[in-house]
Write a protein that binds this DNA or RNA. Structure first.
Lengths: 153, 153
DNA sequence: TAAACTGTATTCATTATAATTACATTAATC
DNA sequence: GATTAATGTAATTATAATGAATACAGTTTA
């Protein structure tokens, strides 16, 4: 999984924390520690998926366009990092034995990986921009981490 | 997750499929489509974790040293790819606002990632070299994929 | 003692990732 | 309108991660 997911979530949380405000790429880049052009690229992806609204021109920038509570991390994961757990290894065409045993192994491992992706998405679907934001806002208190309890269900 | 996990599992399945046989790095490398030196490096890791036994010298190679049924993929994952889902992004020391909001976001995301790692390991702990091997051997039949059903539990 | 292995470090090549630059386009404001 | 400040996007460059290849010391068998 590359860092696009992280940056996307981070920016969305910032937007959700001040829904009326318009944030530009430079400000977001400063908070997320990356380059404005990269922020724009990722935000552009989020816009095409209708999570945010963009305003071009002077005074422009980004605003949230979705309900933080229903915007799940799984959704964002799919946009940014789909199949990050994919099996990365070449085909088995040159198996000389004819028994094609290693192809069988490959299939089995592909099922394992796709199952892994499945449980990961299921876990991420239980968290949303809203839930993370609430977790943040309650941080000064003594709450138990929501992520921890979710993963131990 | 890099491909060490895949190669390790693949090699272990091969060893488990012929427990009496000694496999050398060149043969394994041919089946797994990588370089013998890389196989040796990974097998060396598995040996240090007592999953296999090594025989050096002429006629040497690798043999399984564990019960395939209790050798879970989670265990192998931990050896090869631990924290593959770790948050990869720099610290927040230069936050000028003083509110340290983005540090809070960082902590929240770290919890999310560590929870993700947790569910992934939990999923992998339900599969073993033995279960994969059995899945392979029953492949000619019409069995439902074990991985699929596990991930949908 | 020679041959065939593993163990391991090092170097090189490739690929993936991210930063940077550049510039067209858009919109607000003077 | 002209200027300014923003996004959208492509292209280039730099850096980091990954894997392949090489080399050679150590080990065991015959």
């Amino acid at each position: 999984m590359n860092s696009e997911f992280t940056i996307a979530v981070h920016c969305l949380i910032i937007l959700a924390g001040a829904p009326e405000q318009i944030w530009n790429s430079e400000t977001l880049a400063g908070k997320v520690h990356t380059h404005p052009a990269r922020v724009r690229k990722i935000m552009s992806l989020l816009r095409r998926n209708c999570l945010i609204r963009t305003k071009e021109g002077l005074g422009g920038g980004y605003r949230l366009a979705c309900d933080p509570e229903t915007c799940s991390l799984a959704e964002i994961y799919r946009m940014t990092s789909c199949s990050a757990l994919k099996l990365n290894w070449c085909s088995d065409s040159d198996d000389k034995t004819g028994k094609a045993e290693s192809s069988g192994i490959r299939l089995a491992l592909e099922r394992t990986f796709s199952g892994a992706e499945h449980v990961l998405e299921k876990y991420l679907s239980k968290q949303s921009i809203g839930s993370l934001l609430r977790e943040l806002q309650g941080e000064s208190g003594t709450e138990i981490s929501a992520a921890k309890s979710l993963s131990e269900k």
